[in-house]
Structures are given as C-alpha cells and as structure tokens.
C-alpha cells in the first residue's frame, strides 16, 4: 500500500473514532454547552447587565432536561450554583424579573439546587509549606480570573465592582482576597477607595457570621 493510501486510511480511522466519541457524548456535549451559556448569563448578571431575555430563553429551552431528569449530579450542582448567582442579582420589584425569580425557585423545588459546601467548624492544622502551596494555588486562581476580565477589556474599577458582587453572593473567600488586593493597589495609585473599603469590611463581617 502506498504511503498516501496508508495515511488516508489512518485519517479515515481517526475521524471515525472522533466522530463516534462525539456521537456517543452528544447528550453530554449539549448539557455542557447549555451550562456554558448559563455561565455567560451569570457572569453578565453579576456585572449588572440585563439578562432577563436570555435567561428566560435559556430556561424555556432547557426545562426539558430537568423535567426528564437528564441532568447528572455534577450538572445539577453546576446549574443550581449558576441559577443561585443569577437569582441573587434579580430585582424582585420588577414583574419580569420576579417571574424569573419564581421560575428559578421552581427549578430548585425540582431538585436543581446549588452544591453545598462543607464548612469546618475549626480550620485544619496545616504546615508552613502547605500554606505556601495554598497561597500559590490561590494566586493562580486569582490570576486566571483577572485574565478573564482583562480579555473582556474590563476596567480595573469594573473588575473590582464585579469581584465585590461575587464576594457578596458567593461563599468563597477568594473574592474578598482579590478585592482587598485591588483596593490596596488603587490606594497606592491615589484612587478614592473609601466606598470600596466600607463594602469589603461589611462583606468580611458578613462572612464571619
């Protein structure tokens, strides 16, 4: 068999393998895509953008996944977390938003609930080297998050607003740490930071409760 024929046969086999995997995983790919779209909606919602139309369409399109129990446990948790983030940003005084708010509650009733985090009553004892590792891990995650903002062309103050909103709705200290770091940077650059400091202190107290 010539080299070209062998390569064409190999190409065909590889394509067949990838097509078969994609076909087998069709449901999972669709679910992943749906979660990806909902994630975009949640990010925009946290930035204070109007998301009602997109959210309404998303819920209408994906209700079948819930009704037919087609969501796996990890997907349920991811969708639940994102809906919870979006719900916190909805203005209940607006009738349209209130309708979506209620719709999200009905999804929660159907079992699409946010994944719960285990909260230890006492922090575990960790060695100094673990602490350094953990700091680097935290720093890495923060860099990834900030890169996302940068790629979307966000101004540092918009980033800070968004991070503080995240800190408000999520039980994750990374946002408080990021906000503190940016506020300190802005302070050194001569920015007026009092409102941000007040907000951060309020959120810190809220987290300790």
């Amino acid at each position: 068999m010539s080299r070209l024929k062998t390569l064409k046969r190999l190409e065909s086999n590889l394509k067949h393998l990838l097509t078969s995997v994609a076909r087998l995983e069709t449901d999972q790919i669709e679910t992943l895509n749906s979660i990806n779209v909902l994630d975009d909606i949640a990010r925009d919602s946290l930035k204070g953008r109007y998301v009602n139309n997109r959210l309404g369409s998303w819920m209408a399109k994906n209700r079948v996944l819930v009704d037919e129990g087609r969501l796996k446990k990890t997907a349920i948790s991811a969708v639940g977390n994102l809906l919870s983030d979006i719900k916190n940003g909805l203005d209940k005084t607006d009738p349209e938003s209130k309708k979506l708010f209620d719709e999200i509650d009905s999804w929660f009733t159907k079992g699409v609930v946010p994944g719960r985090k285990v909260v230890l009553s006492r922090p575990p004892e960790i060695s100094e080297s673990d602490l350094t590792e953990q700091y680097f891990e935290l720093f890495k995650k923060e860099t990834e998050q900030l890169t996302y903002y940068k790629e979307h062309g966000d101004h540092i103050l918009s980033m800070l607003d968004d991070i503080l909103k995240n800190a408000e709705v999520k039980n994750d200290p990374i946002y408080l740490h990021m906000a503190g770091s940016i506020i300190y940077y802005l302070k050194n650059k001569g920015y007026k930071i009092d409102p941000y400091v007040r907000k951060l202190r309020f959120l810190e107290k809220d987290e300790k409760k």
Binding site: V21, A22, E25, L32, N33
Partner: peptide
C-alpha cells in the same frame, strides 16, 4: 465545552 462542540 467549545472543543467538544467543535469535534461534533
């Protein structure tokens, strides 16, 4: 997610 969609 995007890679899997592209494969499809």
């Amino acid at each position: 997610c995007s890679a899997m969609t592209a494969l499809k």
